[in-house]
Amino acid sequence: MSTPARQARKALGARLKGIRKDADLTGRALAAQAGWHPSLVSKIEHGAINISEDHVRKWCRVCDAEWERDDLIATVRSIDTMFMEWRRQLRSGTRQRQKLSSTFEAETNFFRVFEPLFIPGLLQTAEYAETMLAMTVDFHGLPNDTEAGVEARMFRQQVLYRGERKFHMVITQAALTIGVVPSHVTRGQLDRLLTLSSLPRLHLGIIPTRAPHKYFPLHGFWIMDDREVLFETISAEVKLTQSHEVAVYRRAFDRLAASAVYGSEARSLITQATEELASEI
């Protein structure tokens, strides 16, 4: 299966192939001048292997494309850090991962967050967080430190009240009632959302189920300033740092946010969801 990192390697390989062709060099000629085995050039151009910064430097020098070097090296670095398997991240439990989140959130001043199916971690109640983390522990077979993980997630939420940070968060109407947590936990979470919706630094948007969509909610993602994008897959967390990639996600966020309602309209949807859950009792 093609992963984001694999796709990024293939895109980098295609770019390097174009540079080689512009220099009117065969793969064998480039390899010979760089002192490599001939098969290495083919593997690089097909995205079959991770390459080093030294590979990029030699490629640009041989192809007389030094002006491309710095941007290509930045791409290599982003590929090295973009894909982290959950089992590797969480092998010591959920608490350490929450502490890591606190670190990079403390470095962020403007958060753009889109979550289509659940409440963002910074807005969760302890009971909601406990259910979500317990599910993660069970699915991945992790050390069960759910209680410590919840404590760390609650500590993370202090970022909501510190400094001059701003938060623009968008969720879907479905996220208000989807059964990822029990109904009684959801009701408490909705009460929490109503309280937080009046926080001046939080711009909370909810996309009504039947609202005209300007872009489809493919998956959740977090944009940290204009520095990086984080999103989760079933098996891993992906981090994107290339400026053009961040720009794509910023455009997607703007279109999703344009379909959302805010203020009293958003609070009405939360109240409506609360009433729907109450009717189930």
Rank of each mutant, 00 (worst) to 15 (best):
S2P: 14
S2L: 13
R6Y: 05
K10F: 01
L12Y: 06
L12E: 09
A23Y: 02
D24H: 14
R28M: 03
A32Y: 00
P38V: 13
E45G: 02
H46P: 02
I51Y: 05
E53T: 10
V56L: 12
R57N: 04
K58H: 04
D64M: 12
W67Q: 14
D71T: 12
T81D: 02
W86K: 15
R87F: 02
R91P: 00
G93K: 03
Q96C: 04
Q96W: 01
Q96D: 15
Q98I: 13
S102C: 06
E107I: 00
I119C: 00
G121K: 01
A129I: 03
E130P: 10
T131M: 12
M132A: 10
D138T: 05
D145E: 07
T146S: 08
A152Y: 04
R156F: 09
R156N: 14
E164W: 03
F167V: 00
F167H: 08
T177M: 15
S183T: 09
H184S: 06
H184I: 09
G188H: 08
Q189W: 14
L190V: 07
R201M: 02
L204I: 05
T209Q: 14
P212L: 10
P217E: 01
P217G: 04
D226A: 11
E228Q: 15
L230E: 04
T233C: 13
I234H: 09
Q242M: 11
V246D: 07
A247S: 12
V248P: 06
A252V: 15
L256E: 03
S259Y: 10
A266R: 09
L269T: 11
T274A: 06
